[in-house]
């Protein structure tokens, strides 16, 4: 049975005793060496370097910076745009992760039923995962284009909308935000559904059988049997989706690019603005450090959840 991080849980520690074991250990580290070195050089070093950059200022695109002390962090405190981006990131994560969990679980429950053509349901569930996020956002932006878009056109054909007064979907802060939520939920349903589906398949048929014998209705089985058994899977999925949502960039960047105004600018877009448009690597890094710190909370939570399940 596949559960999330299952390989991690099956790992056992051991300390070598004889010469044979020592040879085995040497081989293991030899096989791991390329990966560890690559991750240290391109994963760990950049993170530390970003931290260092957050105490630098001036220069252009990282060249010729000088020590800034805590100046960048103090600047954050008075940066209205930073706080608005942070607010958007948090609200976005809250709304879209809740939506994804609900819709994804519903999809999984649906695809777990036995019927002809179930593979089609599963392929449909998988599809939004595979379509490139950025490209997909461009299609959505086109669908919601006020003049040439599919959605307005459909509404007009149905007589629900006067062609003279099209809805400017991406021109209003509220509508654009709402659409981003819908898009983000649509896009990441797949992942939740996949993980929950795996969890569902791990519940033995006898459990349902027993519940039915006891006279439980379908509704009762769902709430009292299925969902409680799914709890560990749901918890891990929730944490992973939150981490991912906090880091969102492609989806918003290609859909509204933060607009209208800065209404849909999240932390990722604000970092990108600082580094690409202003070449301010110091301040960009500072915001990245904040984002990483928030993410780190959830990473620790994730590790604790996994390890607690494994010691049980």
């Amino acid at each position: 049975m596949a559960t999330i991080g299952a390989p991690l849980l099956q790992v056992k520690e051991s300390s070598p005793r004889g010469p044979l074991e020592r040879r085995e250990e040497r081989l293991a580290w030899l096989m791991l060496l390329p990966v560890i070195l690559a991750l240290l050089a391109l994963g760990v070093y950049p993170v530390l370097s970003t931290l260092w950059f957050s105490f630098q200022q001036g220069g252009s695109f990282g060249l010729g910076t000088t020590s800034a002390g805590l100046a960048n962090y103090l600047r954050l405190l008075h940066d209205e745009q930073f706080w608005s981006a942070l607010r958007f990131s948090l609200l976005y994560s809250l709304v879209t992760v809740c939506g994804q969990m609900l819709c994804g679980t519903a999809l999984a429950l649906f695809a777990n039923r036995r019927f002809r053509g179930r593979w089609l349901a599963r392929a449909a569930i998988l599809f939004p995962w595979a379509i490139p996020t950025a490209t997909n956002s461009v299609i959505w932006a086109y669908m919601f284009n006020d003049q040439y878009g599919l959605i307005n056109s459909l509404l007009e054909h149905l007589g629900l909308l006067n062609p003279a007064h099209p809805i400017v979907w991406l021109g209003s802060a509220q509508l654009a935000t709402l659409l981003i939520y819908v898009l983000a939920i649509w896009k990441a349903n797949s992942l939740v559904a996949l993980l929950v589906l795996a969890g569902l398949q791990g519940i033995p048929e006898e459990v349902y059988e027993a519940a039915r014998v006891d006279g439980a209705s379908r509704w009762q089985i769902l709430w009292r049997v299925t969902l409680p058994l799914l709890r560990p899977v749901l918890l891990v999925t929730l944490i992973l989706r939150t981490i991912e949502s906090l880091q969102a960039f492609d989806l918003i960047s290609a859909f509204t690019n933060g607009g209208p105004g800065n209404a849909t600018q999240n932390l990722g877009l604000y970092i990108y603005l600082q580094i690409q448009q202003f070449g301010d690597f110091g301040y960009g890094s500072t915001i990245a450090v904040v984002l990483t710190a928030i993410t780190l909370l959830f990473i620790v939570l994730y590790m604790r959840t996994l390890l607690r399940t494994s010691t049980r």
């Binding site: 760990v44 950049p46 970003t50 990282g62 690597f281 990483t292």
Partner: peptide, 19 residues
């Protein structure tokens, strides 16, 4: 180490990697 590193935001790496 391997797993937790994959969860870090790419934004924590994008600037130094560029350099």
């Amino acid at each position: 180490f391997v797993v937790s590193l994959s969860l870090f935001p790419p934004f924590s790496q994008v600037i130094p990697l560029y350099m």
